[in-house]
Design a protein around this nucleic acid. Structure first.
Lengths: 146, 146
DNA sequence: TTATGTGCAAAGGATTTGCAACAGT
DNA sequence: ACTGTTGCAAATCCTTTGCACATAA
């Protein structure tokens, strides 16, 4: 009910499908491309499961991130944020963070592969990478007339 | 006494040079290229200023980061780490983080300039970027015989 | 049934803050 | 002297954990 590759992952990992987890997964699917904090997930999940607690949210997000269904990262506000990971095998997340409004855009590019190749010839095994650009986005630049 | 460009920055920013701040700056200079947590800075600073408190360390690190004398970032252990910023104007930090031992290497490359250029033609103002590779380093790979 | 998952409240760890005393300039 | 800085302890914020109860398989 969540797409075959997600269901497969859940099954492979002995992942008991409770009402709470279903609610959380639904929230994450409804927010594709957005980066939600645990509190934000809680607020939305409560609409479906009124008694769900924050501990369950953290535990579930953590587990889903561990099996690559979610991607976990932190921007500029000291709290982790989670987003659904479409192709949950390789995750090359290139975020473009606006320093003014905090909006986060994503970059689909894979320019970095050649760099990874270099590292691998040096004996590193590259598991993942993460690139962040800190920017002023076009809208904010206009507001500040820069 | 800390190199002319650091002294200039301090003066420009009305930065009163106390014994505590001197101690912290010395610690950071002594650890060029390393990434210290606030607690680690505290421990070393106490050798010079036995009564210095953790609040002062946080306040000082924050201020030095604000004027680009330090660079602040977080790796995989939920605490901020600080390092001295040699050319404290542009900071292009490319860290290579080993997932096994936590060791952090740096990459001096500037392959990303072309990507920045693309963003700028799209109307973004790029202030900074940050790239992290999550890897297993050669030493750890050997230990795990991978 | 039986191992896993849940909610709650308490604990934990990093960081910040209020405030009275202190110290550069 | 004036103003910014300090140390301490308490407060804050995000996240984790212990435990008794509940529930999916």
């Amino acid at each position: 009910m969540f797409g075959k590759s997600i269901n497969k992952k859940l099954k492979e990992n002995d992942y008991r499908l409770t009402g709470q987890r279903t609610a959380i997964l639904e929230v994450m699917m409804d927010n594709q491309g957005r980066h939600l904090s645990a509190e934000e997930v809680l607020a939305q999940a409560r609409k479906k499961q009124p008694n769900i607690g924050i501990a369950t949210v953290y535990r579930t997000l953590e587990k889903l991130a561990a099996i690559d269904i979610l991607y976990k990262s932190m921007f500029n506000d000291d709290k982790y944020r989670y987003e659904i990971n479409d192709d949950h095998n390789e995750h090359h997340h290139h975020h473009i963070v606006c320093l003014a409004c905090g909006k986060i855009a994503e970059l689909e590019d894979d320019l970095l592969c050649s760099l990874e190749g270099q590292l691998e010839t040096q004996g590193f095994e590259v598991v993942d990478h993460e690139l962040k650009f800190f920017v002023y986005c076009p809208v904010c630049r206009k507001k500040q007339n820069k």
